[in-house]
Design a protein around this nucleic acid. Structure first.
Lengths: 215, 215
DNA sequence: ACTTGTCCTGTCATGCCGTCAGCTTACCGA
DNA sequence: TCGGTAAGCTGACGGCATGACAGGACAAGT
């Protein structure tokens, strides 16, 4: 599937090469979380990695290309988000727990990767299909699971059949992603971190099941 | 309050100056909607405006500074979003209408200004207080109104008093903003534009009132 | 030691950034 | 009508990032 790691000019990368390549990626990730995306320069990343700009261009076409690589790595880890919603019951108290776990898992994942996710979000919003695909890869499993959950509730008559379950699930996931991205934003709004999770949990539960969670 | 428009080196801008300044802003806005933010260069904007890069620097410190200006303009227009929620009843059918209008107004505003809003979102997520303030300015009035609405429902016992009304309102607004920003994203998900609005309306109504909208 | 292929960097042409001095244009009072 | 003054614009320049190449350093096998 993946084949070997290759340099821009077609050579296969060996042990040493892969190490510096990874180091460049690590340094890029660090830069992204300390400087605005627009100001991240190849030369800075190379310096930080103790190498030269020319080396950077041996492994990546440009900064954007390297970010894509970083995002792919993250997307792989993001596959674990599926566990938060797969085979979960949304009935009664276990439903509340499902919502809680989903919110908690989502927020912490976003917090962990916020720097790259910002860029992915931007790229996707700008219409770049490559970023767009990665964003889908991360959100897809969660959204699909939630969509199924909504469909079940529709079958039970708790949610209007006219509503598109994918639209509901997608909107809820978008909400989680957006709140996670602007977590700090809420603070200076007078909303504390601790107040956020229960509210999100409540909204998610309500959106999926059409009912308020039991006390 | 504002005083006159000034150039970077302190001169007051006259008729002609303000015109070219505005032209630069217009061209910048156009560029932002056609190229990725990272690739927007001063020289391109200047060329497009039929002037020289030096002129650009006479009115703005850098690209970011000009974007901020553009964003301020938009924020002023965004004040009209208040009308979507101020003095609205959330009871019965009028509640459904309120939710519908809010969703519709929000989506169209975002669609109209998507290019600048992308950048504002990025800046805010990166922790830049200036972008952050602008984002708040736009969302504040809506959020505050919704917060009041939630409080009323809490007083009626329809929503758990333990939940923070600001967190609920903020999350719903974040959802609207996120969905608006990735409207195109939903399409290739199999969710049509037309399916989005009713679902969002339903979720907003549910979140604010704790109840499903009446048929 | 020699060969082979990987790995890195010095160097260079190109292009954008951001500044300054200086030129042109508009306005205004005498 | 005629300067005088301030606004408005730009050519030119040093500085820095980009991206490409050729060649040197290094490790591994023979």
């Amino acid at each position: 599937m993946t084949g070997q790691v290759r340099t821009v000019d077609g050579r296969v990368a060996g042990r040493r090469g892969q190490a510096t390549r990874q180091k460049l990626l690590d340094c890029l990730g660090e830069m992204l979380s300390t400087s605005p995306y627009r100001d991240v320069k190849v030369i800075d990343v190379a310096r930080k990695a103790g190498t030269s700009p020319a080396t950077f261009y041996q492994y990546f076409p440009d900064v954007e290309g390297a970010v894509l690589e970083l995002a792919e790595e993250m997307a792989k880890e993001g596959a674990t988000l599926t566990d938060l919603v797969a085979d979960r019951s949304w009935a009664g108290k276990s439903g509340t727990a499902a919502a809680e776990d989903l919110v908690e898992g989502f927020l912490s994942f976003w917090r962990k990767h916020d720097a790259i996710l910002r860029v992915v979000d931007l790229g996707a919003a700008e219409g770049d299909k490559r970023f767009y695909k990665i964003r889908m890869k991360i959100l897809n499993s969660v959204t699909n699971s939630l969509t199924e959950a909504v469909k079940e509730q529709q079958a039970k008559g708790r949610i209007d059949e006219d509503l598109n379950p994918g639209a509901i699930a997608g909107s809820l996931v978008a909400m989680l992603a957006a709140v996670a991205a602007h977590q700090k934003g809420f603070q200076s709004w007078g909303v504390k971190q601790a107040d956020l999770r229960p509210s999100l949990t409540w909204l998610v539960h309500l959106g999926i099941t059409g009912r308020k969670p039991p006390k």
